[in-house]
Simulated assay, not measured.
Amino acid sequence: MSDRANTPDVRNPDGSLTIRMKRACNGCGQYVGDADDRDVDEHGNLTDVRAECSHCRPLVELEAAGCQTWHLTPRSIGRIDDAIDRDGRYAKGYWEDVNGKLTVTGLRLGSGPDRIVAKFGDWVIRHLDGTWAVHKAPDSAS
Results as ranks from 00 to 15, higher is better:
Arg89Cys: 03
Gly110Leu: 07
Trp123Phe: 14
Arg79Tyr: 13
Ala83Trp: 02
Gly66Asn: 12
Ile125Arg: 04
Thr69His: 10
Pro74Leu: 15
Arg126Lys: 14
Ile84Asn: 03
Val60Phe: 09
Ile77Ser: 03
Trp70Glu: 10
Gly121Trp: 02
Gly78Pro: 03
Pro138Asn: 09
Ile84Pro: 01
Arg79Cys: 12
His55Val: 15
Ser140Glu: 15
Leu107Val: 06
Gly130Met: 05
Ala65Ser: 14
Ala118Ile: 00
Asp122Asn: 07
Leu72Glu: 06
Ala141Pro: 00
Ala141Val: 01
Gly78Thr: 08
Trp70Arg: 09
His135Pro: 06
Arg108Gln: 13
Arg89Met: 09
Gly121Val: 06
Leu59Arg: 04
Pro58Ser: 06
Arg108His: 08
Asp82Gln: 11
Arg79Phe: 13
Asp97Val: 07
Leu59Ile: 09
Glu61Ser: 10
Pro113His: 10
Arg126Asn: 13
Trp123Val: 04
Leu102Asp: 09
Gly93His: 14
Asp122Arg: 01
Ala118Val: 00
Ala51Arg: 05
Ser140Tyr: 14
Pro113Cys: 08
Pro113Ile: 11
Leu107Tyr: 00
Asp139His: 08
Asp129Gly: 11
Ala91Tyr: 03
Leu102Glu: 12
Lys136Ala: 09
Ile125Gly: 08
Val117Ala: 04
Ala51His: 08
Tyr90Glu: 10
Lys136Asp: 05
Phe120Ser: 09
Gly78Phe: 08
Val124Asn: 03
Arg75Pro: 00
Leu107Ser: 01
Asp114Glu: 10
Gly130Val: 04
Arg57Lys: 15
Ser76His: 06
Asp81Pro: 00
Ala91Met: 07
Asp114Ala: 10
Trp123Asp: 12
Arg86Glu: 14
Phe120Val: 06
Gly88Gln: 10
Leu107Asn: 01
Leu128Ile: 13
Ala64Arg: 13
Ile80Ser: 02
Pro138Thr: 05
Lys101His: 13
Leu62Cys: 10
Thr105Lys: 13
His55Met: 12
Lys119Gly: 04
Gly78Arg: 10
Thr131Ala: 14
Ala64Ser: 15
Glu52His: 09
Gly130Pro: 06
Pro113Leu: 09
Ile80Tyr: 02
Leu62Ile: 11
Glu63Val: 10
Pro113Val: 12
Ile116Asn: 00
Val98Leu: 09
Arg79Ser: 13
Leu59Gln: 03
Arg75Val: 04
Glu52Gln: 11
Gly66Trp: 11
Gly78Ile: 05
Ile77Trp: 02
Cys53Lys: 12
Thr73Glu: 07
Val98Asp: 03
Val124Gly: 02
Asn99Ile: 03
Arg115Tyr: 04
Lys119Ala: 04
Tyr90Trp: 07
Gly106Phe: 00
Ile116Asp: 03
Val104Tyr: 01
Cys53Thr: 11
Leu59Ala: 03
Val104Met: 15
Leu72Asp: 05
Asp82Trp: 02
Arg79Asn: 14
